[in-house]
């Protein structure tokens, strides 16, 4: 998909419809926004800071994709994940 080509091979953050935050390298995309993510890490938000869980390769169905964001490596390096206290993201309610 033309609109997403600029994010290919880059590290992206995917916000899913059910409220999950997944970071990975964008390996593939199609017309329906199905995506292939490599080296996935899920960031889980809670009262005790952010927890990261390795997930490997993920194929996410287009319908479940809400937002795809390009990770700025500099900004991300400076994050102190254990200090970020927030509730988990709410799911998309249609």
């Amino acid at each position: 998909m033309a609109m997403l080509e600029q994010y290919l091979k880059k590290q992206v953050l995917v916000l899913t419809a059910d409220g999950r935050n997944i970071i990975g390298t964008l390996r593939g995309i199609d017309q329906t926004i199905n995506i292939i993510l490599e080296k996935c890490v899920e960031r889980m938000y809670s009262d005790e800071g952010v927890q990261e869980i390795n997930l490997g390769v993920h194929i996410i169905r287009g319908d479940d994709v809400a937002v795809i964001g390009e990770i700025d490596q500099e900004l991300d390096k400076n994050l102190n994940l254990s200090d970020i206290i927030a509730q988990p993201m709410k799911p998309i309610v249609h």
Partner: peptide, 19 residues
């Protein structure tokens, strides 16, 4: 942003129209 810090390290993004 304090309440919703999920995109702190993102500058450019794609938003699916249906959401």
């Amino acid at each position: 942003e304090e309440k919703y810090p999920y995109m702190i390290s993102v500058q450019n993004c794609f938003i699916r129209g249906s959401v």
